[in-house]
Simulated assay, not measured.
Amino acid sequence: MAKYRETAEAWAPLTTDQTRKANRLFDAAHELAKNLRRTDEGRAALLTLLDHAVPGVRMFTATECLSFDPGSAVPVLEAIERLADFHSLEAKYALKMFRDGTFDLDW
């Protein structure tokens, strides 16, 4: 769990001019999250980050939690969408795909 948190924290502040590094960190955090989602303990650990101080970490984690606890994840994504910051667009499209039934985290 610590490795996931550290990776998500490193990813969150990156901007569009740092795409290569952001993509590498995104892929690493997603792989870690997929492993965490496989167990009850891992899912519980992910849920603890839904109130993380960094909006990007909350957004990334809430997106990962959509598959097993949308009741907790959706309000977090909706709040981030309203922030109108760098991660708002990501939150908006995660919610759109989730609501459309096209969201897939198992890639």
Rank of each mutant, 00 (worst) to 15 (best):
R5N: 09
N35Q: 15
R58C: 03
V76G: 06
L89H: 09
A91V: 03
A33H: 05
T102E: 08
P70H: 10
H30E: 09
T61N: 03
C65S: 07
I80E: 11
D27E: 15
H87P: 09
M97N: 04
L14F: 02
G42M: 12
L77C: 01
W107G: 13
D51W: 00
A62V: 01
T16C: 06
L47N: 11
R43F: 10
A10L: 13
P13I: 10
A8T: 14
R5I: 07
A91Y: 07
C65G: 01
N23Q: 14
N23R: 15
N23Y: 09
S67E: 07
R43E: 10
E81Y: 05
K21Y: 13
E9Y: 08
T39E: 13
A8I: 08
D17G: 10
A84H: 14
F60I: 00
A73M: 03
A94R: 02
P55C: 09
D104M: 02
H52V: 06
R82I: 05
A2G: 07
R82L: 11
C65W: 03
R5H: 12
D40T: 13
C65N: 12
R99L: 08
L83G: 10
A8Y: 04
V74M: 00
I80A: 09
P55N: 10
A45G: 12
F26S: 15
G71K: 08
V76Q: 00
D106A: 04
S88G: 12
G42Y: 14
D17T: 15
P75R: 07
V54A: 08
M59R: 11
K92P: 03
A28N: 14
M1R: 07
A45Q: 13
M1W: 03
S67N: 08
C65D: 02
T39I: 11
G71N: 08
E9D: 04
M59I: 02
F86G: 08
A44E: 12
A84E: 14
S88Q: 05
D69W: 01
R58N: 02
L89P: 04
P55K: 09
K92R: 11
T15K: 13
E41G: 14
A2W: 06
H87N: 07
R24M: 15
G101K: 00
L25E: 04
L46V: 05
A94P: 00
D69S: 12
A12R: 02
T102G: 04
M59P: 00
W107Y: 12
V54F: 03
L36P: 08
F103S: 02
L36H: 10
R37Q: 03
Y4S: 01
F86W: 11
A79L: 02
T15D: 15
A12N: 07
R82P: 04
K3M: 13
P13R: 06
R43K: 10
R38H: 14
T61H: 00
S72T: 06
E90Q: 06
A10V: 06
F86R: 11
K96A: 12
D40Q: 12
A45L: 12
F60E: 01
E64A: 01
F103E: 01
P55W: 01
F103W: 07
K3Y: 11
T61F: 08
L105Q: 05
A33W: 07
L77H: 01
F68W: 03
A29V: 01
T48I: 12
D17F: 13
A94F: 09
E6L: 04
